[in-house]
């Protein structure tokens, strides 16, 4: 599928846009190279949210990241939700559009969470069909993000990276590689995070996510929760370095959605990501 980018996304650090940071962003010089928004927060028709976005888009490339399309739903994507996403994409012509390897809607209700998929032949077909339909309607390629998860099913027929790589091959979508999610799921399920990274073709990766997570006690073990509420931890920075060495420099987002910090603290996280990115000489493979 051709990629109708009206903007190109630099292989530098961006951050998730929060309305409370708007004045700081507009009034200061920043090394933050681009912004990402959650599509569903901008599905109103007007008002200050869109005013912010219009101003932001004058100076920065944008990534629209959906959390509610539910590409894993057995009964297809919701027409209205997809139409709302298309309206937003047409309005802002973002450099990147992404969604998740998950589901959130069953029939009538939307559960506002990124729920785990069974990794089976049946769900692979559903997922690929739903992505293909979405890409046809939007007229462009989307990226699919690997989720954090807290259980695995005992009847999975694929590992998660096998499933992710297959949907990219079969649908022509790209991959949004969330390094924090790889780490969280690897720790929760006991697989090797680096093997997961190794399984992904560098050329398929269009974006990287980094975020903080929390650790909860579970009996005598620990479970890691992807809550986007703190700084990126050292182990995830280390896995990020490993990822960049494997796949080259890619646009990298700092996600911080809960207990949102002051603008300067978010910028510091982006600066760290930029310092890693700038040590990678060239992008190994241009994302196509």
């Amino acid at each position: 599928m051709s990629n109708l980018l009206s903007q190109s996304m630099p292989a530098l650090a961006g951050v998730g846009f929060k309305p409370q940071h708007f004045e700081s962003i507009i009034n200061q010089q920043t090394n933050v190279a681009w912004f990402e928004i959650h599509a569903e927060n901008y599905m109103g028709k007007g008002g200050i949210f869109h005013h912010h976005l219009e101003q932001l888009c004058l100076n920065y490339p944008l990534s629209i990241h959906g959390v509610g399309l539910s590409l894993g739903s057995f009964d297809g994507v919701c027409d209205r939700q997809l139409a709302d996403l298309k309206t937003l994409v047409n309005r802002y012509q973002p450099a990147l559009v992404s969604e998740h390897l998950s589901w959130s809607r069953h029939g009538t209700y939307s559960l506002n969470d990124l729920l785990p998929m069974p990794y089976t032949q049946e769900s692979l077909k559903v997922f690929v069909d739903n992505i293909s339909h979405t890409q046809d309607v939007l007229g462009r390629q989307i990226l699919i993000e690997n989720p954090s998860s807290y259980f695995e099913l005992n009847y999975n027929e694929f590992s998660e990276p096998e499933f992710l790589v297959s949907i990219a091959q079969l649908s022509g979508c790209g991959i949004l590689l969330d390094v924090n999610n790889v780490y969280v799921s690897a720790m929760n399920h006991g697989f090797d995070a680096k093997e997961y990274i190794d399984a992904v073709a560098p050329v398929s990766v269009g974006e990287i996510h980094l975020a903080g997570h929390s650790v909860q006690a579970m009996h005598d073990k620990e479970i890691r929760i992807d809550d986007h509420g703190s700084k990126v931890c050292d182990a995830v920075w280390e896995l990020y370095q490993y990822t960049l060495d494997k796949i080259g420099a890619k646009p990298t987002l700092i996600e911080w959605d809960n207990d949102v910090p002051a603008w300067q603290e978010l910028v510091e996280q982006a600066d760290i990501a930029n310092s890693y990115l700038k040590k990678i000489d060239v992008a190994l493979d241009t994302y196509e």
């Binding site: 599905m43 109103g44 209205r80 939700q81 959130s104 209700y109 506002n112």
Partner: peptide, 10 residues
């Protein structure tokens, strides 16, 4: 009444 739409502003 779980939400019927993913956009919670509705």
């Amino acid at each position: 009444y779980p939400p019927k739409r993913a956009a919670l502003l509705h």
